[in-house]
């Protein structure tokens, strides 16, 4: 490693951070896609399976309108980003423990261990979007009864993705260090995620919640974020108050996350 120091000094800390983040994200994706034969299929099989179940329950068995029509498109608009959210949070509980040896032997800014989770799960999310596009296209082309169209609001996917990333990073920065001290939080998080799945408008529409719960439900930042995603096909889902509260909540959580992380960083390193 004799030649290393010169180049190391030449690269700015930010560029180095980005480079390392990219290396770790690549590693995660490579591990995920080379160790199983189905690889990519696995990341889309899970949401497909879940959508099939909910589609069957709500449109074939119960025959009740819980969302917009076509239901499968409505569902996937919430389910795919939900997968990004839940898998990232679940995995950030192990962000430090899983890579403990690397954390102990590198001087990278410690937040990278949370960001790599969000980044690699985010890329998996982006890779799963073709599934949604495929269903939407199929309905638009082959189903004469449906008038599914893509609206200008599809552009709102960009702020939606940014807000969701901020939210996940914020929560990850809170969860990851605290789990190092309280290991049973790992299980608690799994439980909370299961609750959140039903507390968030994923299988149903926000509008179907009782009016009295609307304000309360808006404080779940995912409600606003998913409304943004859904507005691409269903502009009536745009609830600006919910979105506004969701955006503010996401940024606040990111702020709290940065603060908590900064405070815990030293203690985490000692504990690993």
């Amino acid at each position: 490693m004799t030649a290393a120091p010169t180049a190391r000094a030449a690269r700015s800390p930010f560029a180095r951070y980005r480079h390392s983040l990219w290396l770790l994200t690549q590693r995660d994706l490579r591990v995920r896609y080379t160790t199983s034969v189905l690889g990519y299929l696995w990341s889309i099989l899970d949401p497909l399976m879940m959508s099939a179940i909910y589609w069957f329950v709500f449109t074939v068995v119960i025959k009740r309108d819980v969302g917009e029509d076509p239901y499968i498109v409505f569902l996937l608009c919430g389910l795919l980003p939900w997968m990004w959210f839940s898998t990232s949070i679940n995995e950030s509980t192990r962000a430090f423990l899983k890579d403990a040896k690397l954390v102990r032997s590198t001087k990278l800014p410690r937040s990278i261990w949370v960001l790599r989770v969000v980044a690699s799960k985010g890329i998996e999310f982006l890779l799963s979007i073709p599934v949604l596009a495929g269903f939407a296209l199929a309905f638009a082309l082959f189903d004469a009864e449906s008038d599914l169209t893509l609206h200008w609001t599809a552009l709102l996917w960009i702020p939606a993705i940014i807000l969701q990333a901020a939210l996940i990073v914020g929560l990850g920065l809170i969860v990851a260090p605290i789990v190092v001290f309280f290991r049973d939080l790992e299980r608690a998080v799994k439980l909370i995620m299961r609750f959140m799945f039903y507390a968030t408008p994923i299988v149903y529409s926000f509008a179907l919640l009782p009016q009295s719960l609307h304000l309360l439900a808006s404080f779940n930042p995912l409600a606003g974020i998913f409304a943004l995603y859904r507005s691409a096909f269903f502009p009536q889902e745009l609830e600006w108050l919910t979105i506004g509260i969701g955006a503010a909540m996401s940024l606040a959580i990111l702020g709290i996350g940065l603060l908590v992380f900064k405070r815990c960083e030293r203690a985490v390193l000692k504990e690993l």
């Binding site: 390392s20 770790l24 590693r27 102990r104 032997s105």
Partner: peptide, 26 residues
């Protein structure tokens, strides 16, 4: 100290070397 610690068993030796050395700033 603990420099070989972070190798991932599922990846090849080559990938692991590039990853670890890259994280150390090379």
């Amino acid at each position: 100290i603990e420099i070989t610690g972070g190798f991932v068993d599922d990846l090849s030796v080559r990938d692991n070397v590039y990853l670890t050395a890259g994280l150390h700033g090379m």
